[in-house]
Amino acid sequence: MSRAALLILADGRFPAGGHAHSGGAEAAVKAGRVTGAPSLEDFCRGRLHTTGLVSAGLAAAAALGADGRAALDEAVDAHTRSLALRTAARKLGRQLLRAGRATWPSPELDALARAFPKGAHQPVVLGTTARAAGLGPADAAYCAAYETVSGPATAVVRLLGLDPFEATAVLARLGADLDEVAAAAVRAAHRVPEEGLHALPAASAPLLEIGGEAHAAWPVRLFAS
C-alpha cells in the first residue's frame, strides 16, 4: 500500500466534481446560520458528527468488503430523506467513479460502474476507490469524514469572502473530532459481517436535509448543493 495514494484521494483538487458543491453551506449562509469562522466551525462539527459519521461508516465498509455494495447503496437511499441530497450524492458518486477508474483501474470499480451507470452513492464509491488504490478502511473513513468539512469550508471562503487562513484553521481545530469519527466508523464497519448493515452509524441531520431541499429549488445559486 502506498501512503501517497491517500494524499491523492484526499486532495481537494482530485477531479471528482466536489468543487461545485457546498455541502449545505450555501443554504446555511443564506439562512444566516454561518456568518464567519466560529459559526463555520459549529456547522462543520455538526455535519461531521452526523453526515460525516454516516459517510465514513459506509466508506469504511465499502473499503473492507468486495460484496454487498448494492446493499450499502440501498442503505444510503433509506437513510437520506431528502431527494435533493440523494441526487447530489449519486451525481458525486458517478463523478468520483470516473476519476477513480481512470486513476486506479480495477475490476471492482468497473463492476460498480456497470451496476450503477448513473452513479452509486458517493461514500460507497469512495470506499471502493480507496480499496482500488490499495488503501484500507481507516483511510476511506478519514477521506469521507474530511470531505464533509473541507467542502463547506472552501465554499464559505467563496460565499462570504471568509479569510482562507481562518477557514483552514477551522479544519485544523476539527482534527480530534475527525479522529473520533473515523475511529467510530471503522469499528462499526468491522462489525458489519456479523451484525449486518445495522451496525453502521445512522445519525441524521434534519436541518441539512431541509436546507438541501430548499436550496435545490432556488433559481439562483453558486453551488449545485
Binding site: P15, R94, R158
Partner: peptide, 20 residues
C-alpha cells in the same frame, strides 16, 4: 451544468460534470 462559482474549473481542472 452547475459550476460552483468556478466555470474554468468545470471546463478545465475537473471536467467530470461536463463529461457526464
Amino acid at each position: 451544468v452547475e459550476t460552483g462559482a468556478c466555470p474554468h474549473t468545470a471546463i478545465r481542472d475537473d471536467i467530470s460534470a461536463n463529461l457526464e
